[in-house]
Nucleic acid binder design. Sequence first.
DNA 1: AACCATACAGACAGGTCTGTCTACTAGCAA
DNA 2: TTGCTAGTAGACAGACCTGTCTGTATGGTT
Lengths: 203, 203
Amino acid sequence: MASTGTAPPAGARDRILSTAFQLFYAHGPRGVGVDTVVARSGVAKATFYKHFPRKDDLVLAYLDAVDQAWFGALRAAARAAGDNPRDQLVGAFDALATACRREGYHGCAFINAAAECGTGTEVHARTVEHKRVVLAWVTDLARRAGAADPDVLARALTLLLDGGLAAGVLDAEPAAAEAARYAARILVDAGCEAAAASHRPAG
Amino acid sequence: MASTGTAPPAGARDRILSTAFQLFYAHGPRGVGVDTVVARSGVAKATFYKHFPRKDDLVLAYLDAVDQAWFGALRAAARAAGDNPRDQLVGAFDALATACRREGYHGCAFINAAAECGTGTEVHARTVEHKRVVLAWVTDLARRAGAADPDVLARALTLLLDGGLAAGVLDAEPAAAEAARYAARILVDAGCEAAAASHRPAG
DNA sequence: AACCATACAGACAGGTCTGTCTACTAGCAA
DNA sequence: TTGCTAGTAGACAGACCTGTCTGTATGGTT
């Protein structure tokens, strides 16, 4: 287990992936060459192609890492907002504000990648899948919050989320994240009140 | 003025620009080479470089064309919704639905281009400027609609708009556009009601 | 007729990108 | 010792990209 000094501190694959994560997010997958990733991660080219036979394989691994990180942050922010599903729906938007403040924030990695790679590519498919999973999660939360129409409410909230993320490509303005949270509260209240009123025995 | 048969039906510059418009929007500026634009527009390479000394000049001209088209569609949709500013704010979202249904719709050209080209580029600056102009227009409309806080309402509405556009990179779902319009109505009503109530002589 | 602006056709240089290939090194296990 | 695994170092082919350059044709103007 002991490294020999010149040996990598972590596995070559991990180093490649974490280097790619930074570079791909900052400049887009298409904006970073394999040579750059190889040089920056201190790995031989043959080693690179052993772990990731094609560059696309690395891009997909990168997107999986992003998916885990972002979806995880979303759920953590919701959980931190308490037990009430309505508060959780709004609280998820804290993840947006947190991401906004992070150094090097550059918008939604999925949308950026999908914008580069054309329709019909694996990258595109992976992005669609990611958005579908997030939408399903929000829809479930909206249902548990007692929304009159969970589908429409969830769709509106994810639009808001995507808008906040997309705007991040331009400039990480906290005002955008705050406006998103404010709007989310209004939409959640409006979407759940009618149902709550009709469910209540007495108006 | 009469063409000689082999002569171009329109000026070389126009042909280049309209070809670039299609190709750049479909594959992104970085995904289309100069050679492709030259070949598809039936123009000599020297002619191309005479009108657009660098490829970036063509990209910027493309973004200007997109800006005119999209901002124009936005204002037209708002105008079509009537004279009431509140209705106009909501009506602008019809432009999103219309764009969504158009063949080859692929999201917001500005966000896509900005995702490819890095921060600090002219493309990035042009995108920021475009979004700034749209935000200012929506803010003005929100003020005329009597919003309690026009800045926050406008920010929320543009987030919704950007979200709808960004989602278009993945799939042009009419459901997203409908949800955006629905959410816009709620936000506008919520943002203007308080002000309207306080402005009214009697509650 | 002479001249000039505009455009076409296409070769070319210099660079970057992906992916393959050869040759060498070190640790570990049978 | 022998062989396997995982890695380093770097040359190389082939494709593609931007931007320059030479040469030709055509129509209008003086």
